[in-house]
Design a protein around this nucleic acid. Structure first.
Lengths: 204, 204
DNA sequence: CTGTTGTAATGTGTTAACAATAGACCATTC
DNA sequence: GAATGGTCTATTGTTAACACATTACAACAG
């Protein structure tokens, strides 16, 4: 066979959304930055239609804030109280996922998670912190998806995005890999309690 | 002055979203129902553009499910495990809101909440259960908005919608008003613990 | 100088036509 | 008869032009 991992086909809109999320999370588009539809359309070589769709999507995710007839801009950070609530909610979701997954991961699942950790270490070595963030997220997303499918990912995603928005800069310690490895090891050992603990320790 | 309550100006898209949500929650559009853009456009006397926006929005809310090039359909009910998770998450949010609000409600806030309860009783008397549901939601939404603004409403809303989708038919006991009155009374008495308890009892 | 009103420029909301895709139907082949 | 392949239609994705709202700024009255 020509490769185990299925090559992901992303729709045009998903790719643009991904790009904009990167720009926002990386700090390239700080809060309050206004988005101009025409400008973005030209940048991506599209018309305004798909761009509008993406803006709507990111607004629902909480990354952007839109007002009627006034356009969209990058959302500002949450006040601390709301941020704490979001962390609590995200932890609840990930705790659920871990508990569901315990004992239900296939060897291939484990292998894919291992491979994500390798990429993570690699990005850290290259000091590509935007990529680090994306891989970090994809590790969690993999677990969430396995536990609850697209449905669960959809409710989980906004919390991650909002949290990332609040950490203006990555705390790029090598702790990052260790923390994720701890989660994976606990899952491999089917030690649910340890896995939950490791996840909670990682989300902060 | 010509009236205390500000008349809400809803954008065209918001009105259509509202209508579609009603149709879905009322059971008029049961799960798996396919949405046809052209059809909807004609029904609302618009072009397909705004309709597509609304569909995207409701998809993000979890009411619809969309596939590339295949259109959108009404989402099916959640599996019980995920439903329990959603209830837990919604309770966390409402608990947060109640706690934040305790002692911070103005007389006007109280009056507006009272007036919502009157409408609720009225809709119950008329046996207009779709309206009951909407007013029920608006009571909670009022509290959520006061506590955390639009931001909090946006993360809270999907849970309510998904939960409503799962209760195919309204459990339209007159308990409904009582339960909400209990919340309001506890808030008036600034009894945070009682208010939280009442809210948790109402969300199920 | 201050506040108000009108106007122009910018950008968003909407539309209708066009392109591309998915799904159904039918014919053909083995 | 089952499977493969090719039209054909219905529906979604995209585009570009147009309608409308908002903002900023300039002219003006008090």
């Amino acid at each position: 066979m020509a490769g185990n991992r299925a090559t992901k086909i992303l729709s045009v809109k998903d790719q643009i959304a991904e790009q904009l999320r990167s720009d926002i999370i990386s700090g390239e588009m700080p809060p309050q930055t206004k988005l101009n539809e025409k400008e973005l359309a030209e940048r991506f070589g599209l018309s305004r239609g798909p761009i509008r769709d993406v803006i709507l999507q990111l607004t629902k995710e909480g990354l952007l804030i839109s007002r009627n007839n006034c356009g969209a801009s990058v959302n500002s950070v949450l006040e601390p109280k709301l941020q704490r609530l979001m962390i609590k909610l995200r932890r609840s979701i990930e705790e659920y996922a871990i508990t569901e997954l315990n004992g239900n991961l296939t060897d291939q699942n484990i292998a894919e998670l291992e491979s994500i950790l390798v990429s993570l270490q690699d990005a850290l070595d290259r000091e590509d912190y935007t990529e680090v963030t994306k891989i970090d997220i994809s590790f969690h997303q993999y677990l969430i998806y396995q536990a609850g499918g697209e449905e669960l990912v959809n409710i989980w995603y906004p919390y991650v995005m909002r949290m990332r928005l609040n950490y203006k800069r990555i705390t790029s310690s090598s702790e990052c890999v260790n923390e994720h490895r701890a989660i994976l090891e606990a899952l491999k050992a089917q030690d649910s309690a340890a896995a939950v603990k490791a996840v909670k320790h990682n989300i902060k």
